[in-house]
Design a protein around this nucleic acid. Sequence first.
DNA 1: CCCTGTAATGTAAGCGCTTACATTCACTTT
DNA 2: AAAGTGAATGTAAGCGCTTACATTACAGGG
Lengths: 345, 345
Amino acid sequence: MTPKDPNTSDFVPRLADVAGRAGVSTATVSRCLNSPEQVQKKTRDKVMKAVAELGYSPNFSAQSLAAKRTNTIGAIIPTMDNAIFARGIQAVQEELGRAGATLLVASSSYRPALEADQIRALVARGADGLLLIGHHRDSQIYEFLDRQQVPVVVSWAYDPDKPKPSIGFDNRAAMRAMAAEVLSQGHRRIAVITARQADNDRARDRVAGIRDAMENAGLDHSRLPVFETHYAIEAGSAALASLITSSPAPTVVICGNDVLAVGALLAAQSLGIRVPQDLSITGFDDIELATVTSPALTTVHVPHRKMGVLAARQLWQMVTDGGSGDSLRLDTELKLRGTLGPPSN
Amino acid sequence: MTPKDPNTSDFVPRLADVAGRAGVSTATVSRCLNSPEQVQKKTRDKVMKAVAELGYSPNFSAQSLAAKRTNTIGAIIPTMDNAIFARGIQAVQEELGRAGATLLVASSSYRPALEADQIRALVARGADGLLLIGHHRDSQIYEFLDRQQVPVVVSWAYDPDKPKPSIGFDNRAAMRAMAAEVLSQGHRRIAVITARQADNDRARDRVAGIRDAMENAGLDHSRLPVFETHYAIEAGSAALASLITSSPAPTVVICGNDVLAVGALLAAQSLGIRVPQDLSITGFDDIELATVTSPALTTVHVPHRKMGVLAARQLWQMVTDGGSGDSLRLDTELKLRGTLGPPSN
DNA sequence: CCCTGTAATGTAAGCGCTTACATTCACTTT
DNA sequence: AAAGTGAATGTAAGCGCTTACATTACAGGG
């Protein structure tokens, strides 16, 4: 048995094998697979029969090396560890699948250097386009992306003035609305728990939104207590435990996201603090977690699936039609559930 | 300006450009990148300088076409929509990253046909190995995988008698332990809410574990009410609402996973049923959701991260050393929290 | 019946790498 | 000083596809 013997158990058919079996050239087989309308029905049937009989499936590397196209979109999200990006990314995946493209997901663990690596890796892999979270990153990366001519869409943020189109929501305005609601219920002693702001424009914008609202209400926000921590329920709990000892104690804790807010809620309850009677807590994102606590979390709803679908559609359009893409602003919505109430004193 | 002019804004350097600039052959550049110990330090420095100056990054398709190796592992998980696989997969990703490999994640939406497509797609993409969830799938797929000689590790399950090595836990034994605990607290009227069993060996094994425990306790399980539904909090809620009307009403609802259990818990509470006084509820998986409800969910803890790390390590080992791999059984642990108590009557 | 035009198919040149094999070079060894 | 050795480097043949271009087949027009 030669290594090319189709009967050998580990024989993997090539395009040429299909061509041989069907009695046509490799070009015809390739055309059958990629633009079937170019080949006559009779020939096509013959070829497809051979494809089926051999169980042929094209070699992706060879295909994209030759065609300079991979039908692949890359996405780099900060984390897969919690549900914040899960639903949106799932929607992206489904939408791309509908278009015949594949999504490759990598995560950066909120580390800029790692994100840069992942971007390079995905581009080297021939990603036809990239979905990135938030605008903020080193300008070198954008230069690299431009040089490689890779279309990029930014999501989970919205800022039409940035060079890359963004399909998402206005973090600052959304949080401003939440903070305004908090203030309108009478709160004045506010504390904030947020993810690290340094490399995270979304976290920054959200905090800025709180300050906006305070300013609009004629309040001084220069001494607003802002507690930064990492992205985990326990981190939210720890943050609350330490915030709560400050004097005067806050009547409300505005959290930059639901994960931290749920942590804060749990900590408050385990310390015997009643929510919302003794202390109000708000979140942001409206992930599943927010709906299962008691009381359920008052938070800012983000249209995850819609955002994912639209971002995917736009990005794929940019890839296929070569346009530069427009930004699109989606609305968020206040979800007033059980953890926000008027202050008791 | 020729298209090869390095000053053109969209010039993307090739291996040959680096070689030219460094004054060496392409082979030497390739060696510098892939097995630097083979080339003299002086030459290497020259080459690396050229690489840096040009901002060269290898073309993945060409690389894997030539080397027949992609340094890529594929994973197909049933869903990204909730957190069940998130933590474990994140661990896989990190562990593979440590080894210099990349993880590609696809999701099958619990659909066998889609899973088969994704498997083929990942193999065509040259995945060096595959991580699959659960053993159960069409034998054709296994034949395909064997023919293509792609190493496979199964996770989230453990069964050393299957052809593919599994690194996970014994779903049946784990649930048997939970059910035994439930019985020992005095429950006799049991109902079950589970994900669809047809294409899901893990769901099946868990239900079997409940029956085991009943049998061990000398109980008849032939009329055990088992409610199948899809994977969502609301589905769990709906299931509970309909189960609870049966007569005699169950004193405990054992759920096949935490998502359904949380749904059931929420539904019970909104119906005014006190948990665990009027009704006990148990889950399985111990995802984040389980810790934030009140009361927190009694469930089976699964060592997600550990499982991910070990599966990744084993799979990568199989890829690089070519072994066939061993199965490994990890322990689960009962987490007795607030939703299980003795029956009230 | 030859010519032209068009549709279908074939031929073969890459795509950008890796790597087997050949060559060169700097030392040792005799 | 010739020969032998091993390490460092170079040469060039693919890897399995796509696609520009060449060829063939066949219909209809003159």
